[in-house]
Nucleic acid binder design. Structure first.
Lengths: 339, 339
DNA sequence: TTGAAAGCGCTAACAC
DNA sequence: GTGTTAGCGCTTTCAA
């Protein structure tokens, strides 16, 4: 250990340095560095001596120093709104998977759907000079956009293609998902259609879906029968409560469009409990294509979104250089038994 | 910008340094550092000049350099087996929340339930000299334990208390959860009890629950009627398939203990679809206390685990110094309508 | 209250 | 194939 370090109790264990290894192995520092990174040339004999010194000392390279010296880290920043909505763990999973494979590590931040928080996070992540940034959505504060542009860091904006991106964009059109849902319900003959949703000010993509949905209804000369918006994050319980309230106001509804599958499952459970016949008495339409909906006795009619794939694609783009890309991964309408 | 940097196109934008700020503000580097960290003394006038220079230049402090100089980062490593099982996003959520509040950033790693992978991750995270490490479970490879011990990094092992920890431990006894479940079913009079579970070699805590469950059955002189183990991660679909197979072998079962709520929901859906009366014809018992189970027409009888809390506690412990603690957060049996 | 200077542990020329 | 040396951008004494 570097002499004076013996005095510092707290850090003895973790402060074996490359210099120590070099001394132990009886070679120069740069030689150790070369061997460890397997870069440049050295003899087999040297590699063995270094390796054995590393093992003997229990040396763990200090990436902080490494990153500073080589101006570049293997960190990739990921910024998402929440972990409570399954969408984001799924995206994260795809991203993590691709990143680890490529030798990157992810630093994550949660905005709680708050643009100020997002701004703060971007700044503090950039302070680590990440190799890339994956971020949910296309809507950011002006300052956030400026920072991202100025950073020189590769960016991938995920989950949405309705708008303009900064660098890479991977997702699909939420508006179009809403449109497709509306066309489907209309084609099946439903006319007294209600909506049960959650906090649209925060979940911008849910708002876009509803906008697309209403657009098609309007084209068909139909207006939404009624809507029930819950001022909270989406959940099964909120979906149940929302539909309950909506039905008590409008018993004549023949179909309900939900802001996502969680909400729709709540509605489904309500109907099951009350003996409301699905889809004859009431049709239900969700969004996301979650397992829970697909395994129910009557699979939920919904739209499946390739969340894991989006994370993967974004991660790959950000790790490789090349021109900015816009990748529309699409979505798929799953005809179940609820609409 | 530092003169020679003008030549390096790729990094112009992000390479305003503290030196640049000092020059722009007409003060010394250490003064800028003090102002930025709000530490040490400086005049109000100076703070304004520095702040304005920072804004003008769009300076973002380089934490890599900062961490190297001060030997200490604000990074906390989090290592979990998976993101596909809701348990871990929940733990992560709790941890993230506490960490951000305390000014830390989290670097996450996924082991995919693989101890070698875990070992590799621990090593590469330690290379960033994190302030702490949150890791799921108490079972690690020998080398992993050695590295954790030697690192000097504060560790919190989460979700399990059945075993010996390295530093802090936050969780509850999985064995005891299994025992409580068995006692409950026995007390309700069930005797022909089956088990439907997922890959126990990988999910050690599920294995411990089953062990506790069997222990109580054995004490009562009862043996498990039959079991169906699916060699895959838990999911609603696998739960359904598992129960289906089990029932075809043992139509006389009167209760089934599932490895978790996902699996149990699959079983629940199977019964719903087949018109199997719950709990009279067949009782179902889960684990985790997920929303989906609690919102079903017949709430699932299960054990609620304080996942978010565990993440929070672990994070707080790791960020503050103090003696190693063992915190048993307990769990709660939720009597639903399925058993 | 402020500045100068010596590192933090590593990488990357550049000699040899 | 290997060692020497000059930084990377910051924090931290220590004087002034």
């Amino acid at each position: 250990m570097s002499e004076d370090r013996w005095l510092d109790n707290r850090r003895i264990a973790s402060s074996v340095t490359l210099t120590d290894v070099a001394r132990e192995a009886g070679v120069g520092e740069s030689t150790v560095s070369r061997v460890l990174r397997n870069h440049g040339s050295f003899s087999e004999k040297t590699r063995e001596r270094v390796q054995s010194a590393v093992d003997r000392l229990g040396y763990v390279p200090n990436k902080i120093a490494g990153a500073l010296a080589s101006t570049g880290s293997n960190l990739v920043a990921i910024i998402i709104p929440s972990l409570a909505n399954i969408v984001f763990p799924d995206v994260l999973r795809g991203a993590q998977n691709a990143l680890m494979t490529a030798g990157f590590q992810s630093v994550i931040g949660i905005t709680d759907y708050d643009q100020n928080q997002e701004e703060t996070l971007i700044e503090s992540m950039f302070a680590w000079r990440p190799a890339g940034l994956l971020i949910a959505g296309l809507e950011h504060s002006e300052r956030a956009v400026t920072m991202m542009r100025a950073s020189g860091v590769r960016i991938a904006e995920l989950l949405d293609t309705d708008g303009t991106g900064i660098d890479h964009v991977v997702g699909f059109s939420s508006r179009e998902a809403g449109r497709v849902s509306a066309r489907y319900l209309l084609a099946r003959g439903y006319r007294r259609i209600g909506y049960v949703g959650h906090d649209l000010n925060r979940d911008r993509r849910a708002a876009k879906r509803l906008a697309g949905f209403l657009e098609i209804l309007a084209e068909a000369g139909i207006k939404l029968y009624d809507r029930e918006i819950i001022d909270a994050a989406s959940s099964i319980e909120k979906g149940r409560a929302g539909l309950e309230r909506l039905l008590s106001r409008c018993p004549k509804l023949d179909a309900v469009y939900f802001s996502n599958d969680d909400m729709a499952m709540g509605g489904y459970f309500l109907c099951l409990g009350r003996g409301i016949a699905i889809p004859d008495r009431l049709a239900l339409f969700g969004y996301n294509g979650l397992d829970v909906g697909q395994c129910a006795p009557q699979p939920l009619t919904t739209i499946r979104t390739p969340r894991v794939l989006i994370g993967e694609c974004g991660a790959k783009l950000v790790c490789s250089d090349g021109p900015s890309q816009l990748i529309d991964v699409g979505f798929e309408l799953m005809q179940g038994a609820t609409a």
